[in-house]
Design a protein around this nucleic acid. Structure first.
Lengths: 219, 219, 219, 219
DNA sequence: AATGAATGAGGCTTCATTCAT
DNA sequence: CATGAATGAAGCCTCATTCAT
C-alpha cells in the first residue's frame, strides 16, 4: 500500500521479478543460517534477520518453514546441475572431476556448503520429499558422469575393469565422503587449503581409476 | 561399604548395574528416536516414551538433552572401535574391509545406523565437542586401517603407487559416502539387500586398490 | 539400620529422642537453605543434602514442604521467646535492648538469620497460618518489652511522654527495620561488624527514648 | 526514519508509546501478582493472565522472568524517588515525613505495596543486582531526608543530640519496620485504617525526635 | 528407620504462524 | 508489499511427592 505499489501496481513484470529476487534473497539468508545452525535449529526469525526483512514477509513467499527447506533442496538441485554442466564442458576428464570435487568449497558465492549438504542428507532420511529430490540430483549427476567417462579416452580402459557407471558410483561415493569429512575440519582452514586438499584427492582418485599401469604416470 | 553391603554383598552388582542399564536403556531409546527423527526433532518425551520411562527419570542419568547426544556420540565411538577391532582380527584385508563397510547395516542389534551417523556429522559441524569425538573416532579408525594395509601382502603393491595412509583415506571416504547414500534408500530395502550392495562395493573397491593389473582378477 | 537403632531398637525413649533430633537436624538444614535461597527456591533435595540424609526421610518427619516451613516458623517463635527471656533477665533496660537488637547476628549458632526473617514476613503476607504465628510472636515480644519498660526506672519518664506500649512499638519497628536493612549488607561484613552497628543503633535509640534532656548523657 | 514515518510523522508517537505501555501494563500485572504470591510463586502465566495477554508476549518486552523482577525493582526505585520529591516539597518536616510513611498504603494507584517491598528485600538478600538497586534507592532517600532535616528548623536542635544523618537512619528504620509489620495486618483493614495508623506513628516519631522538652508539645 | 529411584505435573521459554495496520 | 505485535502449542527441565526395597 505504499506509493510504489500504487504506481507500478498494474504492471506485471515488476511484480514478477521482485518476487524472484525476494525468494532468492530469502533462500540466500536461509542457506547461511542452515549451514551455521542446521535446519531445525534455525528459526524463521534467524532467516528474516539474516535477510534483513521481517518475519511475516517470508510467509508471503513460502507457505511455511518446510517449504523453505524444500525450496532450498530444489535450488541445491539446480546448482548441482549447473556444476555438472560446467564439468561436462571441461576439456578433459580430470578437469571435470576437479570441478565436481571442488564445487562446494571454491565458489565465489558459496551456495553449496558442506554442512548444508550433510544436513540435507540427514533431512532426506526422514522427509521423503527431500529424499526424492536428493536422490534425483544424485542420479542425474551420476548419469552425467557415467556419460562423461564413457565418452572420454581414459574411460574405455579403466582400472579394475570397471564399467563407467561403476566408476561413477565410486567417484560420487568418494565425493560425498570427502564432503562429509569437510564438516569436521576446523573453521580456521582457508578456502584455498580446502580446495588444495580436494584437488589432491581428486587427482589421486583419477590416477587410480584411469591411469593404467602400462602408461607412465606424469601427474 | 556399610554392613548392609556386607550382608547383601552378593546383591551389590545389581545395585551397580541398574544405573548402567538405565543409561544404556535410555541411549538405546535415544538412538531409535534420533535415527528416526534427528537429534533436534526428538523431544525428551519421545525418548522417555520409547524407553518406557518417565521424562524426569532421564534427568537422573543425563544432565540435559545435550548430554544425551554427547553420550550417544561417545558410545558410537566405542562401537566403532569394536568394529575396528573385529576388522583387525579378520584373516584377510578383504574381509577386514567387508566388516568395516557392513558394520552399519548388518548388526544383530543395529547400534550403528546410517541416519544417526549422518546426523552426528551434521551435529559435529556445529558442536565442537561432538566434532572432536567424531574426528577422534575417524583418526583412530583410519590409523588402524592404515596399519592393516601396511601389514597385508596386497598393501605393499597397491594400485596407483598409493601409500597405505592414502589408501586408507580413500577407503574411508568411500565408506562415508556409501553411508550417506544409504539414508536415501527407501525403507523397504531389507537388511540383506543393503548388505549385499555394500559388499559389492567393498569388493569392487578392493579389486581396484589391491588387485594389480599383472595378476588376473578372478573375483 | 545402624548399630544404635539395633541396640536400642526396643527401648522407647531412644525412639522418641531420635525423632526430635531428626526434626531438629532437618530444621537446622532447612534454615541454612531458606536463609540462602528463600523458602520457595529451596528444594526438598537441597534440605536433604544439607542435612546429609535422604529426601524420603524428610517425609517421615514432615507431611510436606509446607509443614517444614510452618515448623520453622514455629521454632522461630520459640527462639524469639528465648531471646525475650534472656532480655527480661538483663540487669538494665539498655542491656535488654542490646540483647533484642543483636539476637539475629550474634548467636553462636545463628538460628535467627535476617534473610530468613524477612522471608518469613513475606511468607506471612500470603500464608495466614504463618501470619498468625508471626503476629503472635510479635505481640508476645512487644508485650514483654512493654512490661520491661514499665518496670524499669527509665521507663517512667520517657521522652515525648510516650507510654510503655508506644515505646515498645517504636523499638520493635526499629528492630525490624534494622533487620530488613541487614539483608542489604554485603556478605563480606563480619559478624563483629554487624553486631557493632546494631549496638550503636541500640544505644542511640535508648539515649533518645530514655535519656531525658535534663539528665546528662554519659553513654 | 523511512518515508513512512515521514509521511505519518504525527503517528510516530503512538508507535513508541505502545511499547512503553505494554511494559507498564506487564509490570502493573506483575506487581499485583508479586504482591499476592511473591516473586517465585508467581508464574509467567499468572502475569500474562493478569495483564490479559499471552505468555509469549511478555518475552517480547522482557528477556525472562528475572528481567521482569529487575524492571519492577527499577520502577520501584523511580517511584520512591517521586515520593521523595513530593516529600521534599512539603512545607514542613512533619508533612514530609507523613508523605514518606504513607506512600505505600495511600496512593490512588497503589504501586508501592508492602508485601512487594518485603519480597524485594528478600530477593535483594540473594540477588546482588536487586540488592544494589535497593541499596541505591535507600541511600538516595536517606540522603534526601538528611538534607530535609538539616534545612528544617526542628532539625537543628533534635532530641538526643543526634545528627541529621543519624535521625534519617532512625526514621527509615522505623519506616521499614512499619512496612514489615503492615504485611501482618489482616486484609480486611481498609486503606484508611492503614493510613491512620501510619500517620499516628509518624507523628509520634516526629514528636519524639524533634519536639525538645523545653518547648511545649502542642501536637 | 532409611534410601533414592521413579513419577508427572507444572514452570520457563521458544518459535512457527497469523493478522491488523 | 511489508511490518512486527501477538498467539499458543510444545519443548526442556525441575521438583514435590511416593514407594519398593
Amino acid at each position: 500500500m505504499n506509493e510504489r505499489s500504487f504506481i507500478f501496481g498494474a504492471m506485471s513484470q515488476p511484480q514478477l521479478e521482485p518476487t524472484l529476487d525476494r525468494r532468492a534473497q530469502i533462500l540466500d539468508a536461509a542457506l547461511v543460517c542452515f549451514a551455521h545452525r542446521g535446519f531445525h535449529q534455525t528459526s524463521m526469525h534467524d532467516i528474516s534477520a539474516e535477510a534483513g526483512i521481517s518475519v511475516g514477509l517470508i510467509y508471503r513467499y513460502f507457505a511455511n518453514k518446510e517449504a523453505v527447506i524444500s525450496a532450498m533442496a530444489d535450488r541445491h538441485k539446480n546448482e548441482i546441475q549447473e556444476v555438472l554442466e560446467r564439468a561436462r564442458q571441461a576439456p578433459t576428464l580430470l578437469e571435470s572431476l576437479e570441478i565436481l570435487f571442488t564445487a562446494h568449497c571454491c565458489e565465489n558465492s558459496p551456495k553449496v556448503l558442506s554442512a548444508f549438504v550433510v544436513d540435507l542428507y540427514a533431512e532426506a532420511s526422514r522427509n521423503p520429499q527431500v529424499a526424492n529430490l536428493v536422490r534425483d540430483v544424485l542420479q542425474t549427476s551420476m548419469d552425467g558422469v557415467t556419460d562423461l567417462i564413457a565418452r572420454s579416452p581414459e574411460g574405455k580402459n579403466a582400472a579394475g575393469g570397471l564399467a563407467p557407471n561403476e566408476l561413477s558410483e565410486l567417484i560420487f561415493a568418494v565425493a560425498r565422503g570427502m564432503l562429509m569429512r569437510d564438516v569436521l575440519q576446523p573453521q580456521e582452514m582457508t578456502e584455498a587449503e580446502r580446495r588444495a586438499r580436494q584437488l589432491e584427492v581428486t587427482r589421486r582418485l583419477w590416477r587410480l581409476l584411469f591411469k593404467t599401469e602400462t602408461e607412465p604416470a606424469y601427474a
